[in-house]
Write a protein that binds this DNA or RNA. Structure first.
Length: 835
DNA sequence: GAATAAATTGTTTTT
DNA sequence: CAATTTATTC
């Protein structure tokens, strides 16, 4: 077909489309606009030229943005194809797409709504060759990065103390943010011996990633900018395409992201950024608050609109938050206000230690849900705890969130929630995908797509054990280097296999074949031009399900077997996780098919590489949420507990030393407080165990900044019961007073949370906390042998639900479950309760 | 080469 | 405290 003809035809269609909708748009504007307040509407109606929306917490930012986009499409005749919206999390992107789709329908699909990283990745896949990468390049996460750095440190026999991987990594990251390659860095800092060594590692790091056909997170942005900068035609293409660009959470952009956005918007100048300088909490990761503060100067004729009306919180909470943030100096003048009523006072509580804190929160949650009987023990615990909200109850677990500064704090909280039978879900901590067994299987899959990934290969070549020790690997590496091949590539030669030890040979060969089998299938299908006469026997992409491939890999690589023979609690847990991972893969596959797309392995790997834990978080299940304040940005809850308001923890000691550290921490505090809609609790412990050492803690300086009029009367900042000066911070060795035991809790009740704990809790590392608690309880339960059931009894199982006892003997109980059918269970170990 | 024991080190926050 | 790295033994 004639290319020219196609083009003309297309532009004609677009013209007709624009005309008709514009005429219509002059009269009927989309409905959502009516629901906006005057400022929001002004922002939504703004069409051309730079626009800065300063949107305070809870000011209806997302509605304004989505309606603006819908208005552009429906009323202004802008094609969704010409719109780009960039966010920081996949969750935010998904939500925006969903809401726009609700307004304009399926044509929203044509819009690019991505995270910075996903957006850049997409651009890079298309033109990776221009930067010397192959299109199937891998994305390295922090763990991968560290491995490379460590090898570099060894390579140059440098001191790992002086050049800690984290330290080197942060330097490299900062260099990339300033658009400095290893060569640039060497030229700039090479004179200083310390930095010269870092430059050497950086150079090595750059080489390894390039050779492995891989990019790290920073590279995604850096290389996208380089691609656009160095290739006028590519830049022109995207500039022409993205006539309207929106950036969410603009206060968190770094220098590279700024350049990326600036370049893309340069042709049409239709850049709309939304953000709140008071919520910039990622400076430590390179976010440059000046991007939002200087936006008006960087982009000529910027229109600035402030959204200052808060629709989220009661006035008391807002007053409290405002009284804290006003202590920051460098901010745009902006003051949140609300029509809402005062609402409940902020609860401030001083507790003894982290366990006490957790117990207090757990009790409070129970009261908020169940209400409180003044004659009950809970009331006897102290009149000081009774306030109006306690009496009525009626809250749901999902209304509540416990937020904290560091992930480590979740432990004590989890324990208390489990003991109190409170369902919770934990977001964050160790990423599910960072687990060893998951990373291993991912490495196998990565190699299928990208055979150059030596890092992935080294990771799994002896996992399961194939008798490949350090010496052999060294030899292989040198060999591969000399031939300028990847190690996997090298291992595809029979002579190389022959050079291995006798017991390694068949094992390694089998593994290489397992990987190669699938890479040939996938490569055949990704090159659509090569639609050769398909040999009837070989598999094609359509025939193979990712799920089945995964199963096959588990077996043919010997990975599953390797775990099975270990027969330890640990290996069983790993197998369990691998099975869960299969579900993840299957769900991805289903999701893609539902969207009418073909699920691809590379698509899956990509998705996994770029997801954060928050992305999977949904507020539907009835469970209390536990997460860091960082993760909570953008979310809201009727009731919020801010735990650990102590100097040294929040703000952290480190931030107290840094230049603008306190201001960033204060913004974080502000973010935390403004998550609450109706009720805010601030908790502070007098002492806390950190690294297994007990430390006395001082009240957080932020607590002192809160307007005392917003507090309830029970306790005030600055008033320790002791009324004494605090000594110097930390260091004091001692033991935590054994807290009052959680009396009155029958052990059989402890399983209550299991069925309600979400998949999330079981996915995350902190679930190990849950598991440990449960196993210890199970042990006690068995020892006490207090479960007496007979045929005909009704029982409840933590996982299987209710059922009827069919038969019992010395060791086992046979139960017919309502939903799961008949099961034989081990007496004393199965989490059973008589009902 | 692999399985144990001993020693060390780290906690902010995450796309 | 617990996760990870190093040393030691088999």
């Amino acid at each position: 077909m004639n290319r020219k003809f196609v083009l003309n035809n297309c532009s004609l269609c677009v013209m007709i489309f624009i005309q008709t909708t514009t005429i219509r748009g002059d009269k009927i504007l989309i409905e959502g606009l009516n629901k906006l307040n005057p400022m929001q509407r002004e922002a939504a109606l703004h069409k051309d030229g730079p626009l800065l929306i300063l949107a305070g917490a809870g000011s209806g930012k997302t509605s304004t943005m989505t309606i603006r986009i819908a208005h552009l499409i429906e009323d202004e005749g802008v094609s969704p194809y010409n719109i780009l919206a960039v966010t920081f999390t996949n969750k935010a992107a998904a939500e925006m797409r969903e809401r726009i789709e609700a307004l304009v329908g399926s044509k929203a699909n044509r819009m690019w709504i991505f995270t910075f990283h996903a957006c850049c990745l997409r651009i890079l896949r298309r033109d990776a060759d221009r930067l010397g990468y192959k299109p199937d390049f891998a994305v390295y996460d922090t763990t991968d990065q560290k491995v490379v750095i460590k090898r570099g440190i060894k390579e140059f026999s440098l001191d790992e103390k002086k050049y800690a991987p984290n330290y080197v990594l942060s330097i490299i990251s900062k260099a990339k943010e300033k658009s400095m390659t290893a060569t640039d860095y060497q030229a700039a800092f090479g004179q200083n011996p310390q930095y010269a060594a870092v430059a050497k590692i950086y150079t090595y790091y750059e080489e390894v990633l390039k050779r492995n056909n891989a990019m790290d997170f920073d590279d995604l942005i850096f290389n996208a900018v380089r691609l656009l900068r160095g290739n006028q035609d590519v830049l022109a293409y995207y500039q022409e395409r993205f006539k309207y660009i929106m950036v969410d959470e603009y206060q968190d952009t770094n220098a590279l992201q700024y350049q990326f956005v600036k370049m893309l918007s340069d042709a049409h100048d239709n850049l709309c950024v939304v953000g709140d300088d008071d919520q910039c909490i990622y400076q430590w990761r390179g976010a440059d608050i000046r991007n939002i503060l200087d936006f008006e100067h960087d982009f000529k004729d910027t229109k600035v609109i402030k959204l200052e009306q808060n629709y989220r919180s009661h006035k008391t909470i807002l007053d409290a938050a405002n009284s804290v943030i006003k202590n920051n100096t460098d901010r745009k003048s902006k003051k949140l206000w609300t029509d809402a009523e005062d609402g409940e006072k902020v609860s401030y509580r001083i507790v003894d230690n982290e366990k006490d804190e957790a117990r207090y929160i757990a009790r409070e949650i129970t009261s908020l849900v169940d209400g409180i009987d003044l004659n009950s023990t809970a009331a006897k615990l102290g009149a000081s705890w009774v306030n109006s909200s306690l009496l009525d109850g009626g809250r749901e677990y999902r209304d509540m969130a416990i937020l904290y500064r560091t992930n480590a704090q979740s432990r004590a909280l989890e324990e208390a929630l489990i003991y109190s039978k409170i369902p919770y879900k934990l977001v964050g901590g160790v990423r599910y995908y960072d687990r060893k067994e998951i990373k291993d299987m991912m490495s196998y899959m990565r190699l299928i797509i990208n055979p150059d990934d030596d890092l992935a290969l080294m990771r799994i070549i002896n996992e399961p054990k194939r008798g490949m020790g350090a010496k052999t690997l060294e030899k292989l590496e040198a060999w591969a280097r000399s031939q300028d091949k990847s190690i996997l590539n090298l291992l595809q030669n029979q002579e190389v296999i022959d050079s291995l030890s006798a017991k390694s040979q068949p094992l390694v060969k089998q593994m290489v074949e397992a990987i190669t089998k699938y890479s040939s299938i996938f490569n055949l299908n990704s090159n659509e031009n090569q639609e050769s006469e398909s040999d009837s026997d070989s598999l094609s992409l359509d025939d193979i399900r990712l799920e089945d491939m995964y199963d096959d890999l588990l077996v043919s690589t010997g990975y599953l077997k390797g775990l099975e023979v270990q027969e330890t609690v640990e290996s069983e847990g790993r197998i369990e996780n691998l099975m869960e991972f299969k579900t993840v893969i299957a769900e991805y596959e289903k999701g893609e098919e539902a969207n009418g797309e073909v699920a691809s392995l590379s698509g899956f790997l990509e998705k996994v590489a770029l997801v954060a834990d928050v992305d999977n978080y949904n507020q539907n299940e009835d469970a209390v949420t536990l997460m860091t304040i960082h993760s909570a940005k953008g979310l809201e809850f009727p009731v919020v507990f801010l735990a650990g308001m102590e100097d040294g923890l929040f703000p952290t000691t480190r931030s107290m030393e840094a230049e603008d550290g306190i201001e960033e921490e204060r913004r974080l505090c502000y973010v935390g407080m403004t998550r609450a809609k109706e009720k805010l609790y601030l908790l502070r412990a007098k002492g806390r165990t950190i690294y297994g050492r007990y430390n006395r803690m001082l009240e957080s300086r932020f607590l002192k900044e809160v307007d005392v009029n917003t507090f309830d009367k029970v306790a005030m900042p600055g008033q320790d019961e002791t009324g004494m000066f605090h000594g110097a911070m930390g260091g004091e060795d001692g033991r935590v007073k054994p807290g009052a035991s959680l009396g009155g809790m029958s052990s059989s009740n402890l399983y209550g949370s299991d069925s309600t704990n979400t998949k999330f809790a079981t996915f995350n590392s902190a679930s190990s906390v849950a598991k440990k608690i449960k196993t210890s309880v199970a042990g006690k339960n068995a020892a006490s042998g207090d479960l007496h059931v007979a045929k005909g009894d009704k029982v409840r199982h933590a996982k299987f639900g209710e059922g009827l006892v069919m038969d019992t003997d010395e060791k086992t109980i046979t139960v017919m479950f309502d939903s799961e059918g008949k099961k034989k269970l081990a007496k004393g170990f199965a989490p059973l309760t008589k009902i």
